[in-house]
Amino acid sequence: MENLLALAISMIFVNNFILTKFLGLCPFFGVSKKTESALGMGLAVIFVMGIASAASWLLFNLILEPLDIEYLQIITFILIIAFLVQLVELFIKKYSEKLYNALGIYLPLITTNCAVLGVAFLNIQENLSFIGAIVGGISAGVGFLLALLLMSGIRERLELMEVPAPFKGLPIAFIVASLMSLAFLGFAGMI
């Protein structure tokens, strides 16, 4: 149990996917303009990461390893993640059109989000148990959501700030991101 807690904290803060591992930067800048859509995107990523790590763990340990075809993990993981995202998209389109519109193009982009594939690989690499993989996946998603929410909060305020003309929009967002990344470095060595 303690191990799982440590794993969760390490995934959220110490090894934050966006700010320390630099994975999934596309949605980090694309969807962080509004807190509302950032929240939606973050929740979608938590969900996808959770089931993707569960599914990929099962796939790896029950099929790929016994059959001795571990070398297929990249292509099979991509396949399973793409499948899951498609399914999630269909569900969201049906049951929450508002969220679907807010996420826009970024929901299909989760398919090719390296953070989701990254968490699946990390789980296998770290030799986690099934429960561990799910916890790892979900907390990686929570870390993603945290970074996204922080960023969107800052960017909403930035809109109202007097930013020098050449830095307006994305450039200042990049500077903010680098400062945030530096701040998150402070967590290193916590666990």
Partner: peptide, 16 residues
């Protein structure tokens, strides 16, 4: 190995 990988990927594709 060849057979296993073909079958695995093929069946995954079909099921999904």
């Amino acid at each position: 190995i060849i057979l296993a990988s073909i079958l695995t990927l093929g069946s995954m594709g079909i099921i999904f």
